[in-house]
């Protein structure tokens, strides 16, 4: 079986959604991210790959300022979303996070009903005027999350009662419900079995039509399957960034080649 097959990919748009320039991240005295420059395009799946501890998750969390919740973390450099500096003091991180949604490594549904899990974001952002609006948003999000058919008869059952794969799709649907422009996914399949992983990957490919998706993954096969652009991180440096096909077939940097052929990592 050749999982590393590269399908010819069509990049739908070439607008840059997020651009980072000379981005540095420090945890206390540790320099975790060094001089990262990257452009993330709209309506594209961008994969971040690299060995454990290389900083790919840290960098992902910079993109919606989730690192602000960690006291000892410090971010320097410029990160622009649609040309606007997201670390500008004028920017409210709460509003930023509504535009840049996030899905976490471990499914983390709230201890609420499935319906309330999805309705959480729309409610706090006031996206629905009436109950009917909210119902519609919930149904639409669950459909886009490819989980509607499984849960439509038990919307008021607790979200924590679903299986791991269903929980993760619920979390993706929850992130979609706030109508974000960018969706960040931090190893969304690492806690899932292969079947659930396939469902989530299929979902990510569908999401590409509307959102810019950034996915951190440990699995190179997954990066090859779902992404159009791939960034390879190593020891806090962005080693190589380019078309997924080019990274996997014709890497320019010897470190990238070593990693994808399994010599480091």
């Amino acid at each position: 079986m050749n999982d590393m097959r590269i399908v010819e990919r069509k990049v739908d748009a070439n607008e840059v959604k997020i651009s980072a320039r000379t981005c540095q991240v420090y945890y206390g005295d540790t320099h975790a991210i060094k001089d990262v420059d990257v452009d993330i395009q709209d309506k594209t799946v961008t994969a971040f790959i690299g060995p454990s501890g290389c900083g790919k998750s840290t960098f992902l969390r910079c993109l919606n300022r989730m690192n602000d919740t960690i006291d000892i973390c410090r971010v320097e450099g410029d990160i622009h979303l649609d040309g606007e500096d997201i670390y500008d003091p004028k920017v409210d991180p709460v509003q930023l996070r509504a535009k840049v949604g996030m899905v976490f490594q471990k499914p983390n549904p709230f201890p609420k009903s499935i319906y309330d899990n999805i309705a959480y974001g729309p409610r706090i952002h006031g996206l629905a005027k009436t109950k009917a609006d909210l119902d519609e948003i919930v149904e639409k999000s669950l459909r886009r999350g490819a989980i509607w058919d499984e849960v439509k008869d038990r919307l008021h059952a607790p979200g924590t009662g679903l299986s791991g794969g269903q929980q993760q799709r619920l979390c993706i649907a929850r992130a979609i419900a706030t109508e974000p422009e960018v969706l960040l996914m931090d190893e969304p399949c690492s806690a899932l079995d292969p079947i659930a992983t396939a469902q989530v990957e299929e979902l990510i490919d569908e999401l590409r039509a509307r959102y810019s998706v950034v996915i951190v993954t440990h699995s190179m096969q997954q990066a090859a399957r779902v992404s159009q652009k791939t960034a390879f991180f190593h020891l806090g440096n962005l080693v190589e960034f380019g078309e997924t096909g080019q990274i996997f077939t014709n890497p320019q940097d010897p470190r990238t080649e070593s990693y994808i052929t399994g010599r480091i990592g």
Partner: peptide, 27 residues
């Protein structure tokens, strides 16, 4: 209450007090 709950809520653009009121305290 697991930090994952708070992250999930903050990641959706909830403020700290919304997170506490609607996620942490119910849990």
């Amino acid at each position: 209450v697991p930090q994952a709950m708070r992250d999930g809520s903050l990641g959706l653009g909830a403020t700290k007090s919304e997170t506490i009121k609607q996620v942490v305290l119910p849990a």
